[in-house]
Design a protein around this nucleic acid. Structure first.
Length: 582
DNA sequence: GCCGTTTTCGGCCCGACTGTTTTCAGTCG
């Protein structure tokens, strides 16, 4: 049987596979798109499919109609989809991996399967190298070389790049292009602008009087490994850090339309085009046009493009076809949190445990950022690898913090990132925890507990009156560790019931909670702490990643714990905690 | 396969680049 926590992901993946199989089979592209669209909308779903199914509301999911709802039900009940099993039998196992090779699409892959029995990437490479592939109609040397390149990239790494790394690369390239070419304006678009947690490639958009010169400068950058393609207005390259970068140069009159177009998401844009079409308008990357007269009515700015179809401007982080179009139509788009609303960091380490700076250095850095408060939250005694503090060391640290306070304007709060033990008990006794201003609860051990056990463990920690914030609630490490198996819905419900907050941890490899989970928590009324978990001073800059995640989760400033002034924060913390019995 | 301010049938987003072609299909975003 399947874990509830991964069911949405499983169904999305299986629908995606069905889409590819149908495409190889030569089915209607619209049918293929229907599966893809449903897959994406299920993956973005904040709630678990089992819960939606229990309410009989599967068909309320965008892109899910009668047939796909039946497939989901079938999967939930039996753990399999018969139609998918049948489709799989039509092609050799491993064949679908061919479609992951850039430059090779479903048509050619099927052709190669039929003609040369190409059923794997290895076999594909073999027929390319032997030259057999040249016997297939429509494939000459260039196509073969292109496929070989695609295979090399496929092998080099299929993983998507984390947001933080891609963002850094994009900013570097933008700076280099600005310095070297006469670029009027250059913008980051694509999934990077939408702040997805990982990205497949980097999309850049520039305006310039001499596009050819910008393209030339771009493909000549020292960080460029090789050029995928280059024309008069667009080029694509492989960056040495292992990601593709696409650049488009557009006319200044059309930069708004182009930015809108290349920011995506694809599904968001499809919705927009459909709306335009109903108004006898046509949207392309060149502008908004009257379908009958061909007159151009918008394009210079993004807000103009949205206005042309009767919508207010929609923040990029929301453009996932996750309800933002409906909200925009209804005038209920949320005012999203911004980094400048954050008044303090709620999670940071010092060299008392596994941080790398003395307390004073951390405090000075936080004060220099203009924060109103900073929590020092080192590890607790069980976290031996992180040199967790003993009860005595913790008390010594609290005394140290109190003694330091008069020297600083920033409010110094004493905290602890306290381990949640295997049974849900906390790693320090309550009488010690009560001496702290804020207590963070964290799971750092026994990740392999079963779903019921892990859920009960975390819920018990949330029931503890000494705890205020559950940090990195799923324990995942992007690209290296799966989240532990936990019923997050039950965790959020418990957090709300007991007046606790949950964290969006800003560490680039965590981003935990992730966007869809944070959206659900906030929807349930659970306050969200956006905190860096800084171990180095530079980590304080990771705040923007957490803010971006919160924005993707539709979160406004009022839902964020650390937009509150310090007195309000402390009053909230004390409210859930009964006074220490005498 | 989905979906509805013209619709329960007949639509479904749009364009650039590449390689292979004498006019276009495949792939990608």
């Amino acid at each position: 049987m399947y874990h509830g926590a991964v069911t949405n992901f499983d169904v999305a993946r299986l629908f995606g596979e069905m889409a590819r199989l149908l495409e190889v089979r030569g089915e209607s592209g619209f049918r293929v798109r229907a599966y893809q669209r449903a897959a994406q909308s299920i993956e973005a779903l904040a709630e678990e499919l089992t819960a939606v199914a229990a309410r009989g509301e599967l068909q309320k999911i965008p892109g899910v109609g009668k047939d796909l709802a039946a497939r989901i039900t079938e999967f939930l009940e039996t753990g399999a989809i018969a139609q998918l099993e049948a489709l799989r039998r039509e092609v050799p196992p491993g064949f679908l991996a061919l479609l992951e090779v850039r430059g090779l699409g479903p048509k050619t892959a099927k052709l190669l399967l039929d003609r040369l029995a190409v059923d794997s990437v290895d076999r594909l490479e073999a027929v390319c190298k032997s030259g057999e592939i040249l016997a297939v109609a429509g494939i000459r040397e260039k196509t073969r070389d292109n496929i070989l390149k695609g295979i090399a990239i496929w092998r080099a790494g299929r993983a998507r790049m984390p947001l933080a790394q891609a963002r850094a690369i994009a900013r570097e390239v933008v700076a280099a292009l600005t310095a070297q070419a006469r670029v009027e304006r250059i913008e980051i678009a694509g999934s990077l602008r939408r702040a997805r947690e990982t990205v497949k490639d980097i999309d850049l958009l520039a305006t310039a009087t001499d596009p050819a010169r910008v393209i030339e400068a771009f493909v000549s950058l020292p960080s460029v490994l090789d050029v995928v393609g280059a024309g008069g207005t667009k080029a694509a390259v492989h960056h040495r850090e292992g990601i593709q970068i696409d650049l488009r140069v557009v006319d200044p009159d059309a930069v708004g339309a182009a930015l809108q177009y290349f920011t995506g998401s694809k599904d968001h844009n499809v919705r927009l085009r459909e709306m335009a079409s109903r108004r006898q308008l046509k949207i392309s990357e060149y502008g908004v046009f009257d379908e009958t007269t061909g007159t151009r009515i918008a394009g210079a700015t993004e807000p103009d493009v949205y206005a042309a179809v009767g919508l207010p401007w929609i923040p990029p982080e929301l453009r996932e076809n996750g309800g933002e179009i409906e909200a925009a139509l209804a005038g209920t788009l949320p005012a999203l949190v911004t980094a400048d609303r954050i008044r303090g960091d709620l999670h940071a380490h010092t060299d008392w445990s596994d941080g790398h700076h003395p307390i004073e250095t951390l405090i000075e850095a936080a004060e220099a950022r203009g924060y109103e408060y900073i929590i020092v939250s080192d590890h607790s005694q069980s976290a031996t690898v992180a040199r967790g503090l003993s009860v005595d060391r913790l008390r010594e640290q609290i005394r140290t913090l109190r003694a330091l306070q008069p020297r600083f304007k920033i409010r110094i709060l004493a905290g602890s990132e306290c381990d949640v033990l295997a049974d849900g008990a906390l790693d320090f006794p309550s009488e010690v925890l009560r001496e702290l201003d804020i207590v963070l609860a964290a799971v750092h051990s026994r990740f392999t507990q079963g779903r019921a056990e892990m859920t009960a463990r975390i819920v018990r920690a949330l029931e503890n009156p000494c705890v205020q914030i559950l940090v990195h609630p799923t324990g995942r490490l992007i690209g290296s560790r799966e989240p532990y198996d936990v019923d997050l819905e039950a965790v959020f419900v418990a957090a709300r019931a007991h007046g606790k907050a949950v964290e969006i941890n800003c560490s680039p490899d965590r981003l935990d909670l992730k966007d869809s989970h944070a959206r659900r928590a906030a929807e349930l009324g659970v306050p969200i702490a956006i905190s860096t978990d800084a171990h180095y001073l530079a980590n304080l800059d990771n705040l923007e990643l957490g803010v971006a995640t919160a924005r993707r989760a539709w979160i406004g400033p009022a839902q964020v714990l650390n937009t509150r002034p310090v007195d309000e924060l402390l009053a909230w913390a004390r409210a859930g905690r009964p006074a220490y019995p005498s």
